[in-house]
Design a protein around this nucleic acid. Structure first.
Length: 489
RNA sequence: GGUCUCUUGGCCGAGCGGCUAGGCACCGGUCUGCAAAACCGACUACUCCGGUUCGAAUCCGGAAGAGACCUCCA
């Protein structure tokens, strides 16, 4: 491939040229949601970040398999109900089957990700559907000598592992440091060392979600599913593993340990981590209770929201920041994103109306190259967007006669919009694709025609009435030199 | 307490040693019956203190502030 993608690899703390193991194929695994609650803004960030990566890999011609799991087995919760499975807890409260809860929130997750125009992964495996694979993995780790059983639970022997393989390699931790700092947790007494982690946990009486295993009736450890499922669908070694930075330790560190212990292989070649979304400078997260769900954003129904925001505004807001930077939420920032996106969409949708000149006063091929460079430089979407705004400037200036564009360059501008704005950034005009669009266009032409006649007769009372009443139903009329244009507000 | 990261103009946010990032807001102007949009112009910042360098927002050292992880979390 001519164009080379570089990505920041957490493992080496450097940007590296992406070279897949088996071109033209590329494999990526991303930690998906735990489906026991409604998706919030924080969930949108990795979904959109790795959607951008997925789209970019496809754009580059890689036949990409994107695997993103659904965690429906639940994890331990650190509150009064110690040791109780999260999903099981919620199920008991609401008096329904645990799988009903998981299904409900899986559907909710899909619904809101669809609205954000996040492409569905190639495979979306469920942890509960891969218990056998997880048990097999525990057995492999056992055979390799890195696991021990206590009272029906199985733990990973971190100290032993660390003697031959550096535990903490990904997160930059040293075992000696970890020894000094650990807290009291459930099941701590059973472990040889506090930093050992569970591969299989025996279920307590009140624990509803449970499966048979060689050791006990219980449930898989917290980090096991990702290792088992990534191995199953992408192989013992694969290209990219992504997730939020908060998963770096211990989750991803443990995944590496499990893979190396079971297969002797590092498994992942490029680790990529998206940063957090903050609110008032603090991470938006479930445990802090400071999250705003996507539904609340779309409806505006939250005390911190001054208005509702379109899914595309949320997507654009996230893409305006680089994925490795924190992104601070505020109404002001979202409103700025909303306006910027509207400007971008309005300009690009008017490319087709540009009049071609003999010569261009602008360099479109160069602009196109800059877009490519930004994208391929570790998915630098903010720079890419800045370049798209340069295209906006050119389009609008051309409309004003301040710049000229050739027929070829008009095609080039359209190609930039199609490729980068729609295909790769996945942004779309909210009004596009509406099945009533043709009807609406027809109706609007009638209204604009009447208004034009009124204005010709200087009947501004009528023309203003049409404009104002359309505004009331969220349609904006703009008078230009070439007649009136309309758009949704 | 340990490990790590960050601190850019009114707000968001790029930047990785020299060249105005970009968006939004605000202020002038053009256009317009008015409005909106658009265009032109103006404003032009890098937490602080040292150091390296011809030259630093960018590298090094120190200080202050903020955050992440160490426990489920995207």
């Amino acid at each position: 491939m001519e164009k080379r993608l570089t990505v920041y690899n957490t493992l080496t703390r450097r940007k590296e040229v992406f070279e897949p193991l088996a071109p033209p194929f590329a494999g990526m695994y991303v930690c998906g949601p735990t489906v026991y609650g409604d998706p919030h803004l924080g969930h949108a960030r990795p979904a959109i970040t790795f959607d951008l990566l997925f789209r970019t890999l496809q754009h580059l011609g890689y036949k990409t398999r994107y695997v993103r799991n659904i965690t429906d087995v639940g994890h331990l919760e650190n509150d009064a109900d110690e040791g109780e499975d999260k999903i099981a807890k919620k199920a008991r409260i609401e008096q329904v089957e645990p799988m009903e809860i998981a299904q409900f929130y899986t559907d909710r997750y899909h619904k809101f990700m669809d609205m954000l125009n996040v492409m569905r992964p190639s495979i979306e495996p469920r942890a509960s559907g891969h218990i056998i694979e997880q048990i097999n993995l525990v057995e492999q780790i056992f055979e390799a000598g890195f696991a021990y059983e206590v009272n029906g639970s199985v733990y990973f022997d971190v100290e032993k592992y660390d003697k031959n393989h550096h535990y903490g390699r990904l997160s930059g931790r040293v075992l000696d440091d970890l020894m000094a700092n650990t807290r009291e947790l459930d099941g701590q007494q059973e472990k040889r060392n506090p930093f050992d982690f569970a591969l299989w946990k025996k279920a307590s009486d009140e624990h509803i979600m449970r499966w048979p295993s060689p050791w006990s009736e219980g449930f898989p450890g917290w980090h096991l599913e990702c290792t088992a499922m990534s191995t199953k669908y992408l192989g013992e070694e694969f290209d990219i593993h992504g997730g939020g930075m908060d998963l770096l330790f211990p989750h991803h560190e443990c995944e590496i340990a499990q893979s190396v212990a079971a297969t002797g292989k590092q498994s992942v070649r490029y680790w990529m981590h998206n940063n957090m979304i903050t609110i008032n400078g603090q991470k938006m997260g479930k445990s802090l209770g400071n999250f705003i769900t996507l539904e609340e954003f779309f409806t505006g129904n939250h005390k911190l929201l001054e208005q509702s925001y379109n899914p595309m505004t949320i997507r654009f807001f996230i893409l305006q920041a680089h994925y490795r930077s924190t992104l601070d939420f505020s109404n002001e920032a979202l409103q700025a994103a909303d306006k910027g996106l509207k400007k971008l969409m309005a300009a690009t949708s008017s490319i087709k109306n540009l009049k071609a000149s003999d010569k261009s006063s602008v360099n479109i091929p160069e602009l196109s190259n800059k877009c490519d460079e930004a994208l391929l430089d570790d998915l630098n979407s903010p720079i890419l967007i800045a370049n798209l705004f340069e295209a906006v400037r050119i389009i609008n200036a051309a409309k004003d006669g301040k710049e000229t564009v050739s027929a070829d360059d008009i095609k080039g501008l359209q190609a930039i919009a199609d490729t980068f704005l729609y295909e790769i950034l996945g942004l779309s005009d909210a009004a596009e694709g509406d099945s009533d669009q043709v009807l609406l266009d027809g109706l609007m032409n009638v209204l604009i025609g009447i208004r034009k006649e009124a204005r010709a007769k200087k009947d501004f009372a009528t023309s203003d009435k049409i404009r104002d009443e359309l505004l009331a139903v969220n349609i904006v009329i703009k008078d230009t030199k070439d007649g009136a244009e309309w758009s949704r507000g």
